Simulated assay, not measured.
Amino acid sequence: MIVEHAELAIEAGREEEFEAAFAQARKVISQAGGFQWVELLRGVERPAVYLLLVGWESVEAHNVGFRGSAAFARWRELIGPFFASPPDVEHFGVLGERFTG
Rank of each mutant, 00 (worst) to 15 (best):
L53V: 12
A48W: 13
F99H: 13
F66P: 00
S58M: 04
A48R: 12
V44L: 15
A71N: 04
S30K: 12
E97G: 13
G65Y: 04
R42T: 01
V94Y: 10
M1C: 06
L8Q: 04
G68I: 01
R14F: 12
I10L: 07
A61N: 07
R67E: 01
L53G: 06
W56Q: 07
I10V: 15
Q24D: 13
F22K: 00
E60Q: 11
G43N: 03
V59D: 13
E11P: 06
G68P: 02
V28P: 01
A48I: 01
A71R: 13
P86Y: 08
L95H: 13
L40V: 12
L51H: 13
G13S: 08
A20G: 02
S85A: 15
F35M: 12
H62V: 05
A9M: 04
E60N: 01
E97M: 13
F35R: 07
R98C: 11
G13C: 03
I10N: 09
H91M: 02
R98N: 08
R26V: 05
A84W: 13
E45P: 00
E17V: 04
E11A: 10
F72T: 01
H91F: 11
A23W: 12
L53E: 08
V89P: 00
V28E: 01
V3P: 00
L41I: 05
Q36A: 15
V54W: 01
F35A: 11
E45Q: 11
I29V: 15
P81F: 09
R26T: 12
A6K: 00
G34N: 07
E19G: 05
S69V: 00
N63R: 07
A71I: 00
A21W: 09
V89Y: 02
F82L: 03
F99W: 15
V59Y: 03
Q31R: 15
E90N: 09
E4C: 05
A21S: 13
E57D: 12
L78Y: 09
W56T: 07
F18T: 00
F92L: 09
G65Q: 03
T100H: 14
G55I: 02
V89I: 15
A84T: 09
M1L: 10
Q24H: 14
R67T: 01
E45K: 14
R76M: 14
F82S: 05
W37P: 01
G55P: 02
G55E: 13
I10D: 08
F35D: 11
A61Y: 03
V28H: 03
E15A: 04
V64Y: 06
S85E: 15
S58R: 04
F18M: 00
Y50H: 10
L51F: 11
F92G: 01
E45A: 14
R26Y: 13
E19S: 13
A20F: 04
S69M: 03
V44N: 10
R74P: 04
M1G: 11
G93H: 14
F99N: 10
Q31N: 11
H62K: 05
F82M: 05
R98P: 03
G96S: 02
F22D: 00
A21P: 01
F72H: 15
S58L: 04
S69E: 02
G43W: 06
G93Y: 09
L51W: 11
I2E: 06
V54P: 00
R74Q: 15
P87N: 10
V3F: 05
A73L: 11
K27W: 05
R67L: 03
L53I: 09
G101Y: 09
Q31D: 11
E77Y: 08
T100Y: 15
